[in-house]
Design a protein around this nucleic acid. Structure first.
Lengths: 194, 194, 194, 194
DNA sequence: GCTTAATCGAGACGGTACGTCGCGTCTTGCA
DNA sequence: TGCAAGACGCGACGTACCGTCTCGATTAAGC
């Protein structure tokens, strides 16, 4: 009979939360590059070790603080591929175009891309929920006969995410209300006829 | 009347070239984050001042070393919007998906996005040539009656660039030969029916 | 009336011994500065608290592990002052010039000297047995008429101990067999004629 | 023809002096263990690199700041061995029993003894001037016929230095005015009759 | 030919952040 | 209460870059 109970003093949940909150605040206030582990620890009232004990470095910490939300919402099901993709694209906009995400994403994606160990997790870290939904959406659309054959889920998802990131996150274009609808329209139409 | 000729010893053209070459090599060898001004100067056999005299910092230097190529090629003119967009997309792939660009772009875009002074130059720095071409392509397509009204050049360009950057630059998907064609197809079809 | 017996679980004698042994080994292997409480606890298979429950810190622990031997041997009594001092000096060499003492003493004395609470115990901690013997030796020598008046025990003891510590412990001079005899000779002669 | 001129910006003499002064002050105020490189740099208004560029670590820095005085005084020559040794011993007291030396020496000697690279320099670092003088003093005494044969300079010097260090530096005995005379007397008499 | 002034390589400078280590205290569950 | 384990806040460590500065030497243009 195995005991899963870890030996020693258990990690304090409040320490964890203080770090995550301080990270969020620092990112919003000073951006990704302007956020140092030292400053996070100081603002959280925590030793640096408490951070390094939990995360290997800044990228992993910031990712968890800002993007590791469990996606619990229902999969879009509007009855049409266009409607479903529009809803999913809106979710991407909600994830990538918030002030916090805009402040963090460029630097964060750069750090993930630069580190071989993190690089392999890029897709699963940032696009996993959207991808699962997209697979289901496309399956239903195939069952309805809206599309034929195998859709290239990854390419389409990268296109949507890349468009949102580039347009709003990097170029700083105002996040117009219709952005998701426009992108979804382009992509849905674009793949529909193939 | 005085000449514009600056007094004192003129800058050595070879110094400039040595810096640019060393920058390229360092980026290829150690990536953007692993490339320091110190190391560039040392590899170029040059003092740090010689770099800071010419560029304000690493982002501007790397940008000029890798992306400031003058785009002298002719604007695509295949007779159809789809063909023109495909050629233009291929040019984007050629620019964004080379080994050097893959090594430099994530960190470089992050630095541009983080600095207010650089942020305003993002579009003009990385997409200016493509944008000029795209305007011309769309004008011709409009004249031919292929599309109606004003196309959203920036959104479409950001979508194409974002897709290429995300798919190949970040996610590291193998740069298949058909990538440009597939993207161009999706986007052309997608905007054609509106 | 209550007993002095402490409540709760009594301390484990083997824990004590394991700590002392681990301390000795660590000092021999890595020196005083290279010996951390963490490492001692780990090597002893013991929690850090078990150490801090018994000793206030590293200096006290190392002192007890290496120098708190109860000196049970008989007081030298060779019949002459010179002979007695020679034996006593040899005991000092035996205490200060062993490999373990050489490894521990410089750092240990520094820590004692730096801490006001420990500073007052320096003489009693390291020289108490020798001092008691020296007082007795000098008393007998006085009774025999070898010396007159009050000898400055502390100064002479510090001279002998300082000479041994400096010569062998710090300077690392080979511990020649005649060292104790030479020192005892110098000092005995030096004080004998006053 | 060789140029000894070092390339690059020369080191600033005032930086050097500010570091040395700050080190002295810190040692006096907080002792050896309580003096950190960080604090020295901060007090001197200097970057840490400026310190590590000049000294490998705290021991070397403190040594130079407090003990590397050039000894320019004349060699004692009173006409008798006893008088010369008394003067030399007084110089040792002056060096080892000042407030600054008392604050620094125990920790400093411990660090020197613990590091193999520094260990070899112990004698030359702390006793070189005194040793040169002692050799000369003994030569003269030999010429005068006061002593015969080869005196063990190192052992005698270590005895004197060890006595001073132990008695005043470690045990904190008040530095009585007669200390040097007493020690010199003991040692001179002690070696004279052999 | 001389003066003037900017440029050159080199490297020192004050800072800031890094990731690690040791300190002495504390909080678990078990004995 | 003791015990092993290990989390905790703290602060020093030595390193690496940053962007600026100070050296002596070099290199043209204008007098």
């Amino acid at each position: 009979m195995a005991t899963d109970r870890a030996a020693g003093r258990p990690r304090d949940r409040r320490t964890h939360e203080a770090i995550v909150s301080a990270t969020e605040e620092m990112i919003m206030l000073h951006g990704y590059a302007g956020t140092s582990i030292n400053a996070i620890a100081s603002r959280a009232g925590v030793g640096k070790d408490a951070i390094y004990r939990r995360w290997p470095g800044k990228p992993e910490l910031v990712y968890e603080a800002l993007f590791a939300r469990v996606d619990t919402g229902p999969v879009p099901d509007t009855g049409t591929l266009a409607g479903d993709v529009a809803q999913l694209t809106q979710a991407l906009v909600d994830e990538f175009a918030t002030p916090a995400a805009t402040a963090a994403l460029p630097g964060l994606l750069a750090d993930f891309a630069a580190d071989p160990a993190l690089r392999t997790r890029l897709r699963s870290a940032f696009l996993a929920p959207a991808r699962a939904r997209m697979v289901e959406i496309f399956d239903r659309a195939g069952a309805r006969g809206e599309i034929a054959g195998t859709a290239q889920v990854d390419l389409i998802l990268d296109t949507l995410a890349g468009a949102v990131f580039f347009h709003v996150g990097l170029m700083g274009e105002p996040r117009t209300a219709e952005l998701a609808a426009q992108l979804a329209d382009i992509v849905t139409t674009g793949i529909g006829t193939r």
